[in-house]
Lab assay of single mutants.
Amino acid sequence: TFVEFNGKKVEYPTPEAAEKAAKKLAKKLNLKVTKKNGNYKLE
């Protein structure tokens, strides 16, 4: 499962880990999380 932000793509071993990381990053970077095709994107 990938988390995409600032043009970077980071892969996580589980969807749970990706979701957790996405939410944490979104909060830190003041972005919102969108889920697309099972992957997460911060914008």
Rank of each mutant, 00 (worst) to 15 (best):
P13E: 08
T1H: 13
F5N: 02
Y40I: 12
N30Q: 10
Y12E: 00
T14S: 10
E43R: 05
K35W: 11
L25R: 01
K41N: 11
T34H: 08
T1W: 15
L42M: 04
T34L: 09
N30S: 08
Y40V: 05
E4W: 07
L25S: 01
K32P: 04
T14P: 07
V10S: 08
K41P: 02
N39I: 14
K24Q: 13
T14L: 02
E43T: 10
E19M: 10
N37H: 07
K35Q: 11
K32F: 06
A17K: 09
K23T: 12
A18I: 00
T14A: 03
T1V: 13
N37L: 06
L42R: 01
V3M: 04
E19A: 10
K35H: 10
G38C: 07
V3K: 00
T1R: 09
E43K: 05
E4V: 06
V10Y: 15
E19Y: 15
A17Y: 06
K35I: 15
K36P: 06
N30A: 07
L31T: 04
K32R: 11
E11R: 15
K32C: 14
A22Y: 01
Y40W: 12
K36L: 15
K23A: 11
A26I: 03
A17H: 08
K28F: 11
K28Y: 12
N37F: 07
K28E: 13
V3F: 05
F5L: 09
K8A: 09
K35N: 08
G7N: 08
K23I: 13
E16G: 09
N30D: 08
T1Q: 05
N37A: 08
N6E: 11
K36E: 15
K20I: 11
K32E: 07
A18V: 00
L42P: 03
V10F: 14
F2I: 11
E19C: 15
L31M: 12
Y12G: 00
T14M: 03
T14C: 06
A17Q: 10
A18E: 00
G38D: 06
G7K: 05
K35P: 04
E16R: 10
F2Y: 13
N39M: 11
N39V: 14
K27H: 10
N37Q: 07
N39P: 00
K41I: 15
E43S: 09
P13L: 09
G7I: 00
E4D: 05
T14N: 10
V33G: 01
F5Q: 02
G7A: 03
E16A: 12
P15C: 10
P15V: 11
E43D: 08
E16M: 10
A17W: 06
A22M: 04
L31K: 02
A22I: 07
G7E: 05
Y40K: 03
K23S: 09
T14K: 02
Y40D: 03
A21T: 03
P13S: 11
F2G: 03
Y40P: 03
K27M: 10
E16D: 09
A17L: 13
T14G: 05
L25G: 01
N39W: 09
P13W: 06
V33Q: 02
V3A: 00
K20M: 12
K35V: 14
V33P: 01
K41D: 06
A18T: 02
E11S: 14
T14R: 04
V3E: 01
A26S: 07
F2R: 04
V3S: 00
F5T: 03
L42D: 02
E11Y: 15
P15R: 12
L42N: 02
E19S: 08
G7D: 06
P13T: 08
K32T: 13
K23D: 09
K27N: 09
A18S: 01
E11H: 15
G38H: 05
L31D: 02
K9N: 07
K28M: 13
P15T: 09
T34K: 08
E19H: 11
E11N: 11
E19N: 07
V33A: 04
E43C: 13
P15L: 07
V3G: 00
E19Q: 09
E19G: 07
N37P: 02
Y40G: 02
K41T: 15
K35M: 14
K24T: 12
K41G: 06
E11G: 11
Y12F: 11
K32Y: 07
V33D: 00
K41F: 15
V33Y: 07
K8M: 13
N30K: 10
K35A: 07
K24N: 12
A22P: 01
E16K: 12
A18H: 00
K32M: 11
Y40R: 03
K9G: 03
Y12S: 00
T1K: 07
E19V: 06
L25W: 09
E19D: 07
T14V: 02
L42K: 02
K8Y: 13
N6R: 11
P13D: 10
A22D: 00
L31N: 01
L42E: 03
L31C: 10
K9P: 03
A18L: 02
L25D: 01
N39A: 09
E11V: 14
L29W: 13
K27E: 12
K8L: 12
A17M: 12
E43N: 06
E43H: 08
K41W: 15
T34S: 08
L42W: 02
N37I: 02
T34M: 09
K20A: 12
A17G: 07
V33E: 01
K36A: 13
E4H: 04
K28S: 10
G38Y: 03
L31R: 02
T34W: 05
N6G: 11
L25K: 03
K24M: 13
K23F: 13
T1E: 02
L25V: 05
E11D: 07
P13Y: 07
A26V: 02
A22Q: 00
A22W: 01
A21V: 07
A22C: 07
K36N: 13
Y40H: 04
A22N: 00
L29S: 03
A18Q: 01
A26Q: 03
K20W: 09
K23P: 00
K24C: 15
P15N: 09
A18Y: 00
K28C: 14
T34R: 07
N30W: 05
L29G: 04
V10R: 13
L25Q: 04
V3N: 01
K36D: 14
E43M: 09
L25A: 05
L31H: 03
